[in-house]
């Protein structure tokens, strides 16, 4: 049986050292500031991105990898005798999954490649890729690895807070949160990504403290008060205070077993904006997600 390699794209926000340790292949999306084009997480680090964003006159735009980029990776891995599980950003938010699917269809033999629409974003599927890579390292088959991704997607509780809905709005990725009014007030919409891969609002409350309290309440009702959890939190460089506070609150209310902190990269950052905090919670022991 051939060894399974995980392929993902740059929006999974998996830190470089983890990708290297687990042999995860990453295909970058592109971020364009005016005339300058960068490869997400390759030629533009999260820290550089938020720095540039501050001084940029217009919002950057982003674009999905071309099918050729995926094709090159798939062909190389197949030539090495590997098989591939390729997991990508929600197809409702980006054409990345589409490009990967096309690349697969262009292979002479596509039997060794599985492409999965994660219906999620950022470490909200990065975690699934990490767990799948851990499983693959233990010799699991392509089918088992793919099944693990889908199983863990269902186990995950995903919430995120944005400083303002403006970026989601301008980037066109606002999904069902478009109905959330109130840009004048200090409203913290609590957002999630539904099973359909579309952003949807859970609640809107005023002030950060109340937002955190509401998230704790939601998690307690689903997992039980004081439950043992694996926790991953992503934030944006230069704006980490909120994430620090949230981690503190969660540690005081839950038994945090596994913990991972990562950064929201340039592409997701373009559409969510600085100050975004993402929270991914699994019942402890659900998988090696962090």
């Amino acid at each position: 049986m051939s060894k399974v390699v995980l392929v993902t794209d740059s929006t999974s926000d998996i830190p470089l050292e983890m990708r290297e340790r687990l042999g995860i292949e990453m295909v970058p999306l592109r971020v364009v500031f005016g005339e300058e084009s960068y490869l997400d997480n390759v030629t533009l680090s999260p820290a550089q991105f938020y720095d540039k964003l501050k001084s940029a006159s217009a919002l950057p735009t982003t674009s999905q990898p071309s099918p050729a980029q995926f094709l090159e990776v798939y062909e190389r891995l197949i030539a090495e005798g590997k098989s591939v599980v390729s997991v990508h950003l929600s197809s409702a938010m980006s054409g990345t999954y589409q490009s990967a699917t096309i690349a697969r269809s262009m292979l002479d033999d596509d039997s060794q490649v599985t492409v999965i629409d994660s219906k999620s974003a950022s470490y909200g599927y990065g975690a699934l890729v990490v767990a799948a890579a851990e499983l693959a390292a233990r010799g699991a088959s392509r089918e088992e690895v793919a099944a693990e991704v889908l199983r863990l997607r269902k186990e995950m509780r995903l919430y995120f807070l944005v400083n303002t809905l403006e970026y989601l709005q301008k980037g066109g990725r606002i999904g069902k949160a478009a109905a959330v009014f109130g840009t004048l007030l200090n409203i913290k919409p609590i957002l999630t990504i539904g099973d359909d891969g579309v952003i949807s609002p859970i609640d809107k409350v005023r002030g950060q403290k109340r937002a955190f309290a509401r998230i704790v309440e939601l998690l307690e009702s689903e997992l039980g008060a004081g439950a043992a959890i694996d926790l991953a939190v992503v934030d944006t460089p230069g704006d980490v205070e909120a994430a620090d506070d949230l981690v503190e609150v969660l540690r005081s209310r839950f038994d945090v077993k596994g913990f991972r902190r990562s950064e929201v990269g340039a592409v997701i950052g373009t559409h969510a904006g600085p100050g975004t905090v993402g929270l991914f919670v699994f019942p402890a022991g659900a998988g090696q997600v962090v």
Binding site: R30, S63, Q64, S66, P67, A68, G95, Q98, S99, I102
Partner: peptide, 15 residues
């Protein structure tokens, strides 16, 4: 076109 395909419409155009 395939190498340079960008965005959904670009990808479809290339196809």
């Amino acid at each position: 076109l395939l190498m340079g395909a960008r965005g959904n419409s670009g990808v479809i155009l290339s196809q």
